[in-house]
């Protein structure tokens, strides 16, 4: 009797744990998507895009706009991805490239430009779509599945599935296509790639476009029933933590880092008393700081030789 009660309690605790674990995994899949976008941009142009989150937020508004115009959700998302792709490519061409060329290796102008982009997009969204929070459904419905006593939402499972598909598509692109090979070439040595005929500028635009399109997916999956222009402020920090942990040049690292950060944040918010809901960001901050101090290249990244 006593033992049965004990077992039941342990069982309860375990399924509760499992529930948080999967919740974290689902959120982690979104962070992984944004982290992948950050990694793509870092690899082609060696910079951190601080506006990545806000670009995704705008893409989410676009998706919402198309959806409220009567388009089916999936169609709206795909169209928004296409538009985001074009927008991302345009940002690279019009904003980033001229500044980067002028900066000659000084990171400050490019950082400031992406912060400017952050500010402009964050301010433009409530201007264009008004400041009221927008209702938006879960892409994968609000049902749930029971696994080992834990109830896992279909949204979580769907998000994980999306991550798997994304990784597979990216792998195909980078490993199996000529364009993917050229992008990797540019990431590794852009001058040599140019000297065999790769149009480097176009590859950079492609990288930014891809990252922006992935941001659209991440944004839409981040929404839980309603959103406004603050949608991506916190997820961006998680994604940065994920990319830092995995290594800014490592797609594998982004995925592993994203899932890890998601789970760690969820479990620490649930179980570590002083962190709780408001301080969810603390683990992410600590992670960024510790990884950059102890192992700046991350778990899967390549050690950089500092250029003097």
């Amino acid at each position: 009797m006593l033992i049965a009660a004990l077992v039941a309690q342990v069982d309860n605790k375990f399924s509760e744990f499992l529930q948080f674990f999967f919740l974290g995994l689902g959120k982690g899949a979104v962070y992984a998507t944004i982290a992948l976008a950050l990694v793509i941009i870092f690899r082609v142009s060696g910079m951190l895009n601080f506006a990545q989150g806000e670009m995704a937020m705008v893409s989410t508004y676009v998706t919402w706009g198309l959806w409220t115009k009567g388009l089916p959700l999936v169609a709206a998302l795909i169209l928004a991805m296409v538009l985001s792709f074009l927008g991302g490519a345009a940002i690279e061409r019009v904003v980033i490239r001229p500044i980067e060329r002028k900066a000659r290796g000084n990171p400050l102008p490019v950082v400031i430009a992406t912060i400017g982009l952050f500010l402009a997009l964050n301010g433009a969204a409530p201007w264009i779509w008004d400041a009221e929070a927008k209702q938006f459904p879960y892409v994968f419905g609000s049902g749930s599945v029971s696994i080992a006593g834990a109830s896992i939402s279909t949204q979580t499972l769907g998000t994980l599935a999306v991550l798997v598909v994304e990784v597979a598509l990216l792998w195909l692109l980078f490993q199996k296509t000529k364009v993917g090979l050229a992008m990797r070439g540019v990431a590794s040595n852009s001058q040599s790639s140019a000297l065999v005929g790769v149009p480097v500028g176009r590859m950079l635009m492609l990288g930014w476009g891809l990252a922006a399109a992935m941001g659209a997916v991440a944004g839409v999956l981040t929404v839980s029933l309603a959103f406004d222009n603050s949608l991506m402020a916190v997820p961006l920090i998680y994604a940065f933590a994920a990319a830092t942990l995995g290594g800014f040049d490592s797609p594998v690292g982004a995925v592993v880092g994203g899932l890890t950060v998601g789970v760690v944040a969820e479990l620490s918010a649930a179980y570590v008393g002083f962190i709780g809901e408001p301080l969810r960001l603390l683990p992410a901050f600590v992670l960024i700081l510790v990884v950059l101090l102890v192992r700046p290249q991350g778990l899967f990244g390549k050690a950089q030789v500092s250029r003097v």
């Binding site: 000529k178 070439g185 065999v196």
Partner: peptide, 19 residues
């Protein structure tokens, strides 16, 4: 030499045929 260090030898050659 401008080696594209992260690509394999074969990928370097394939990239050489980009045009």
């Amino acid at each position: 030499r401008g080696t594209i260090t992260d690509l394999t030898v074969e990928e370097n050659l394939r990239l050489g045929a980009y045009v």
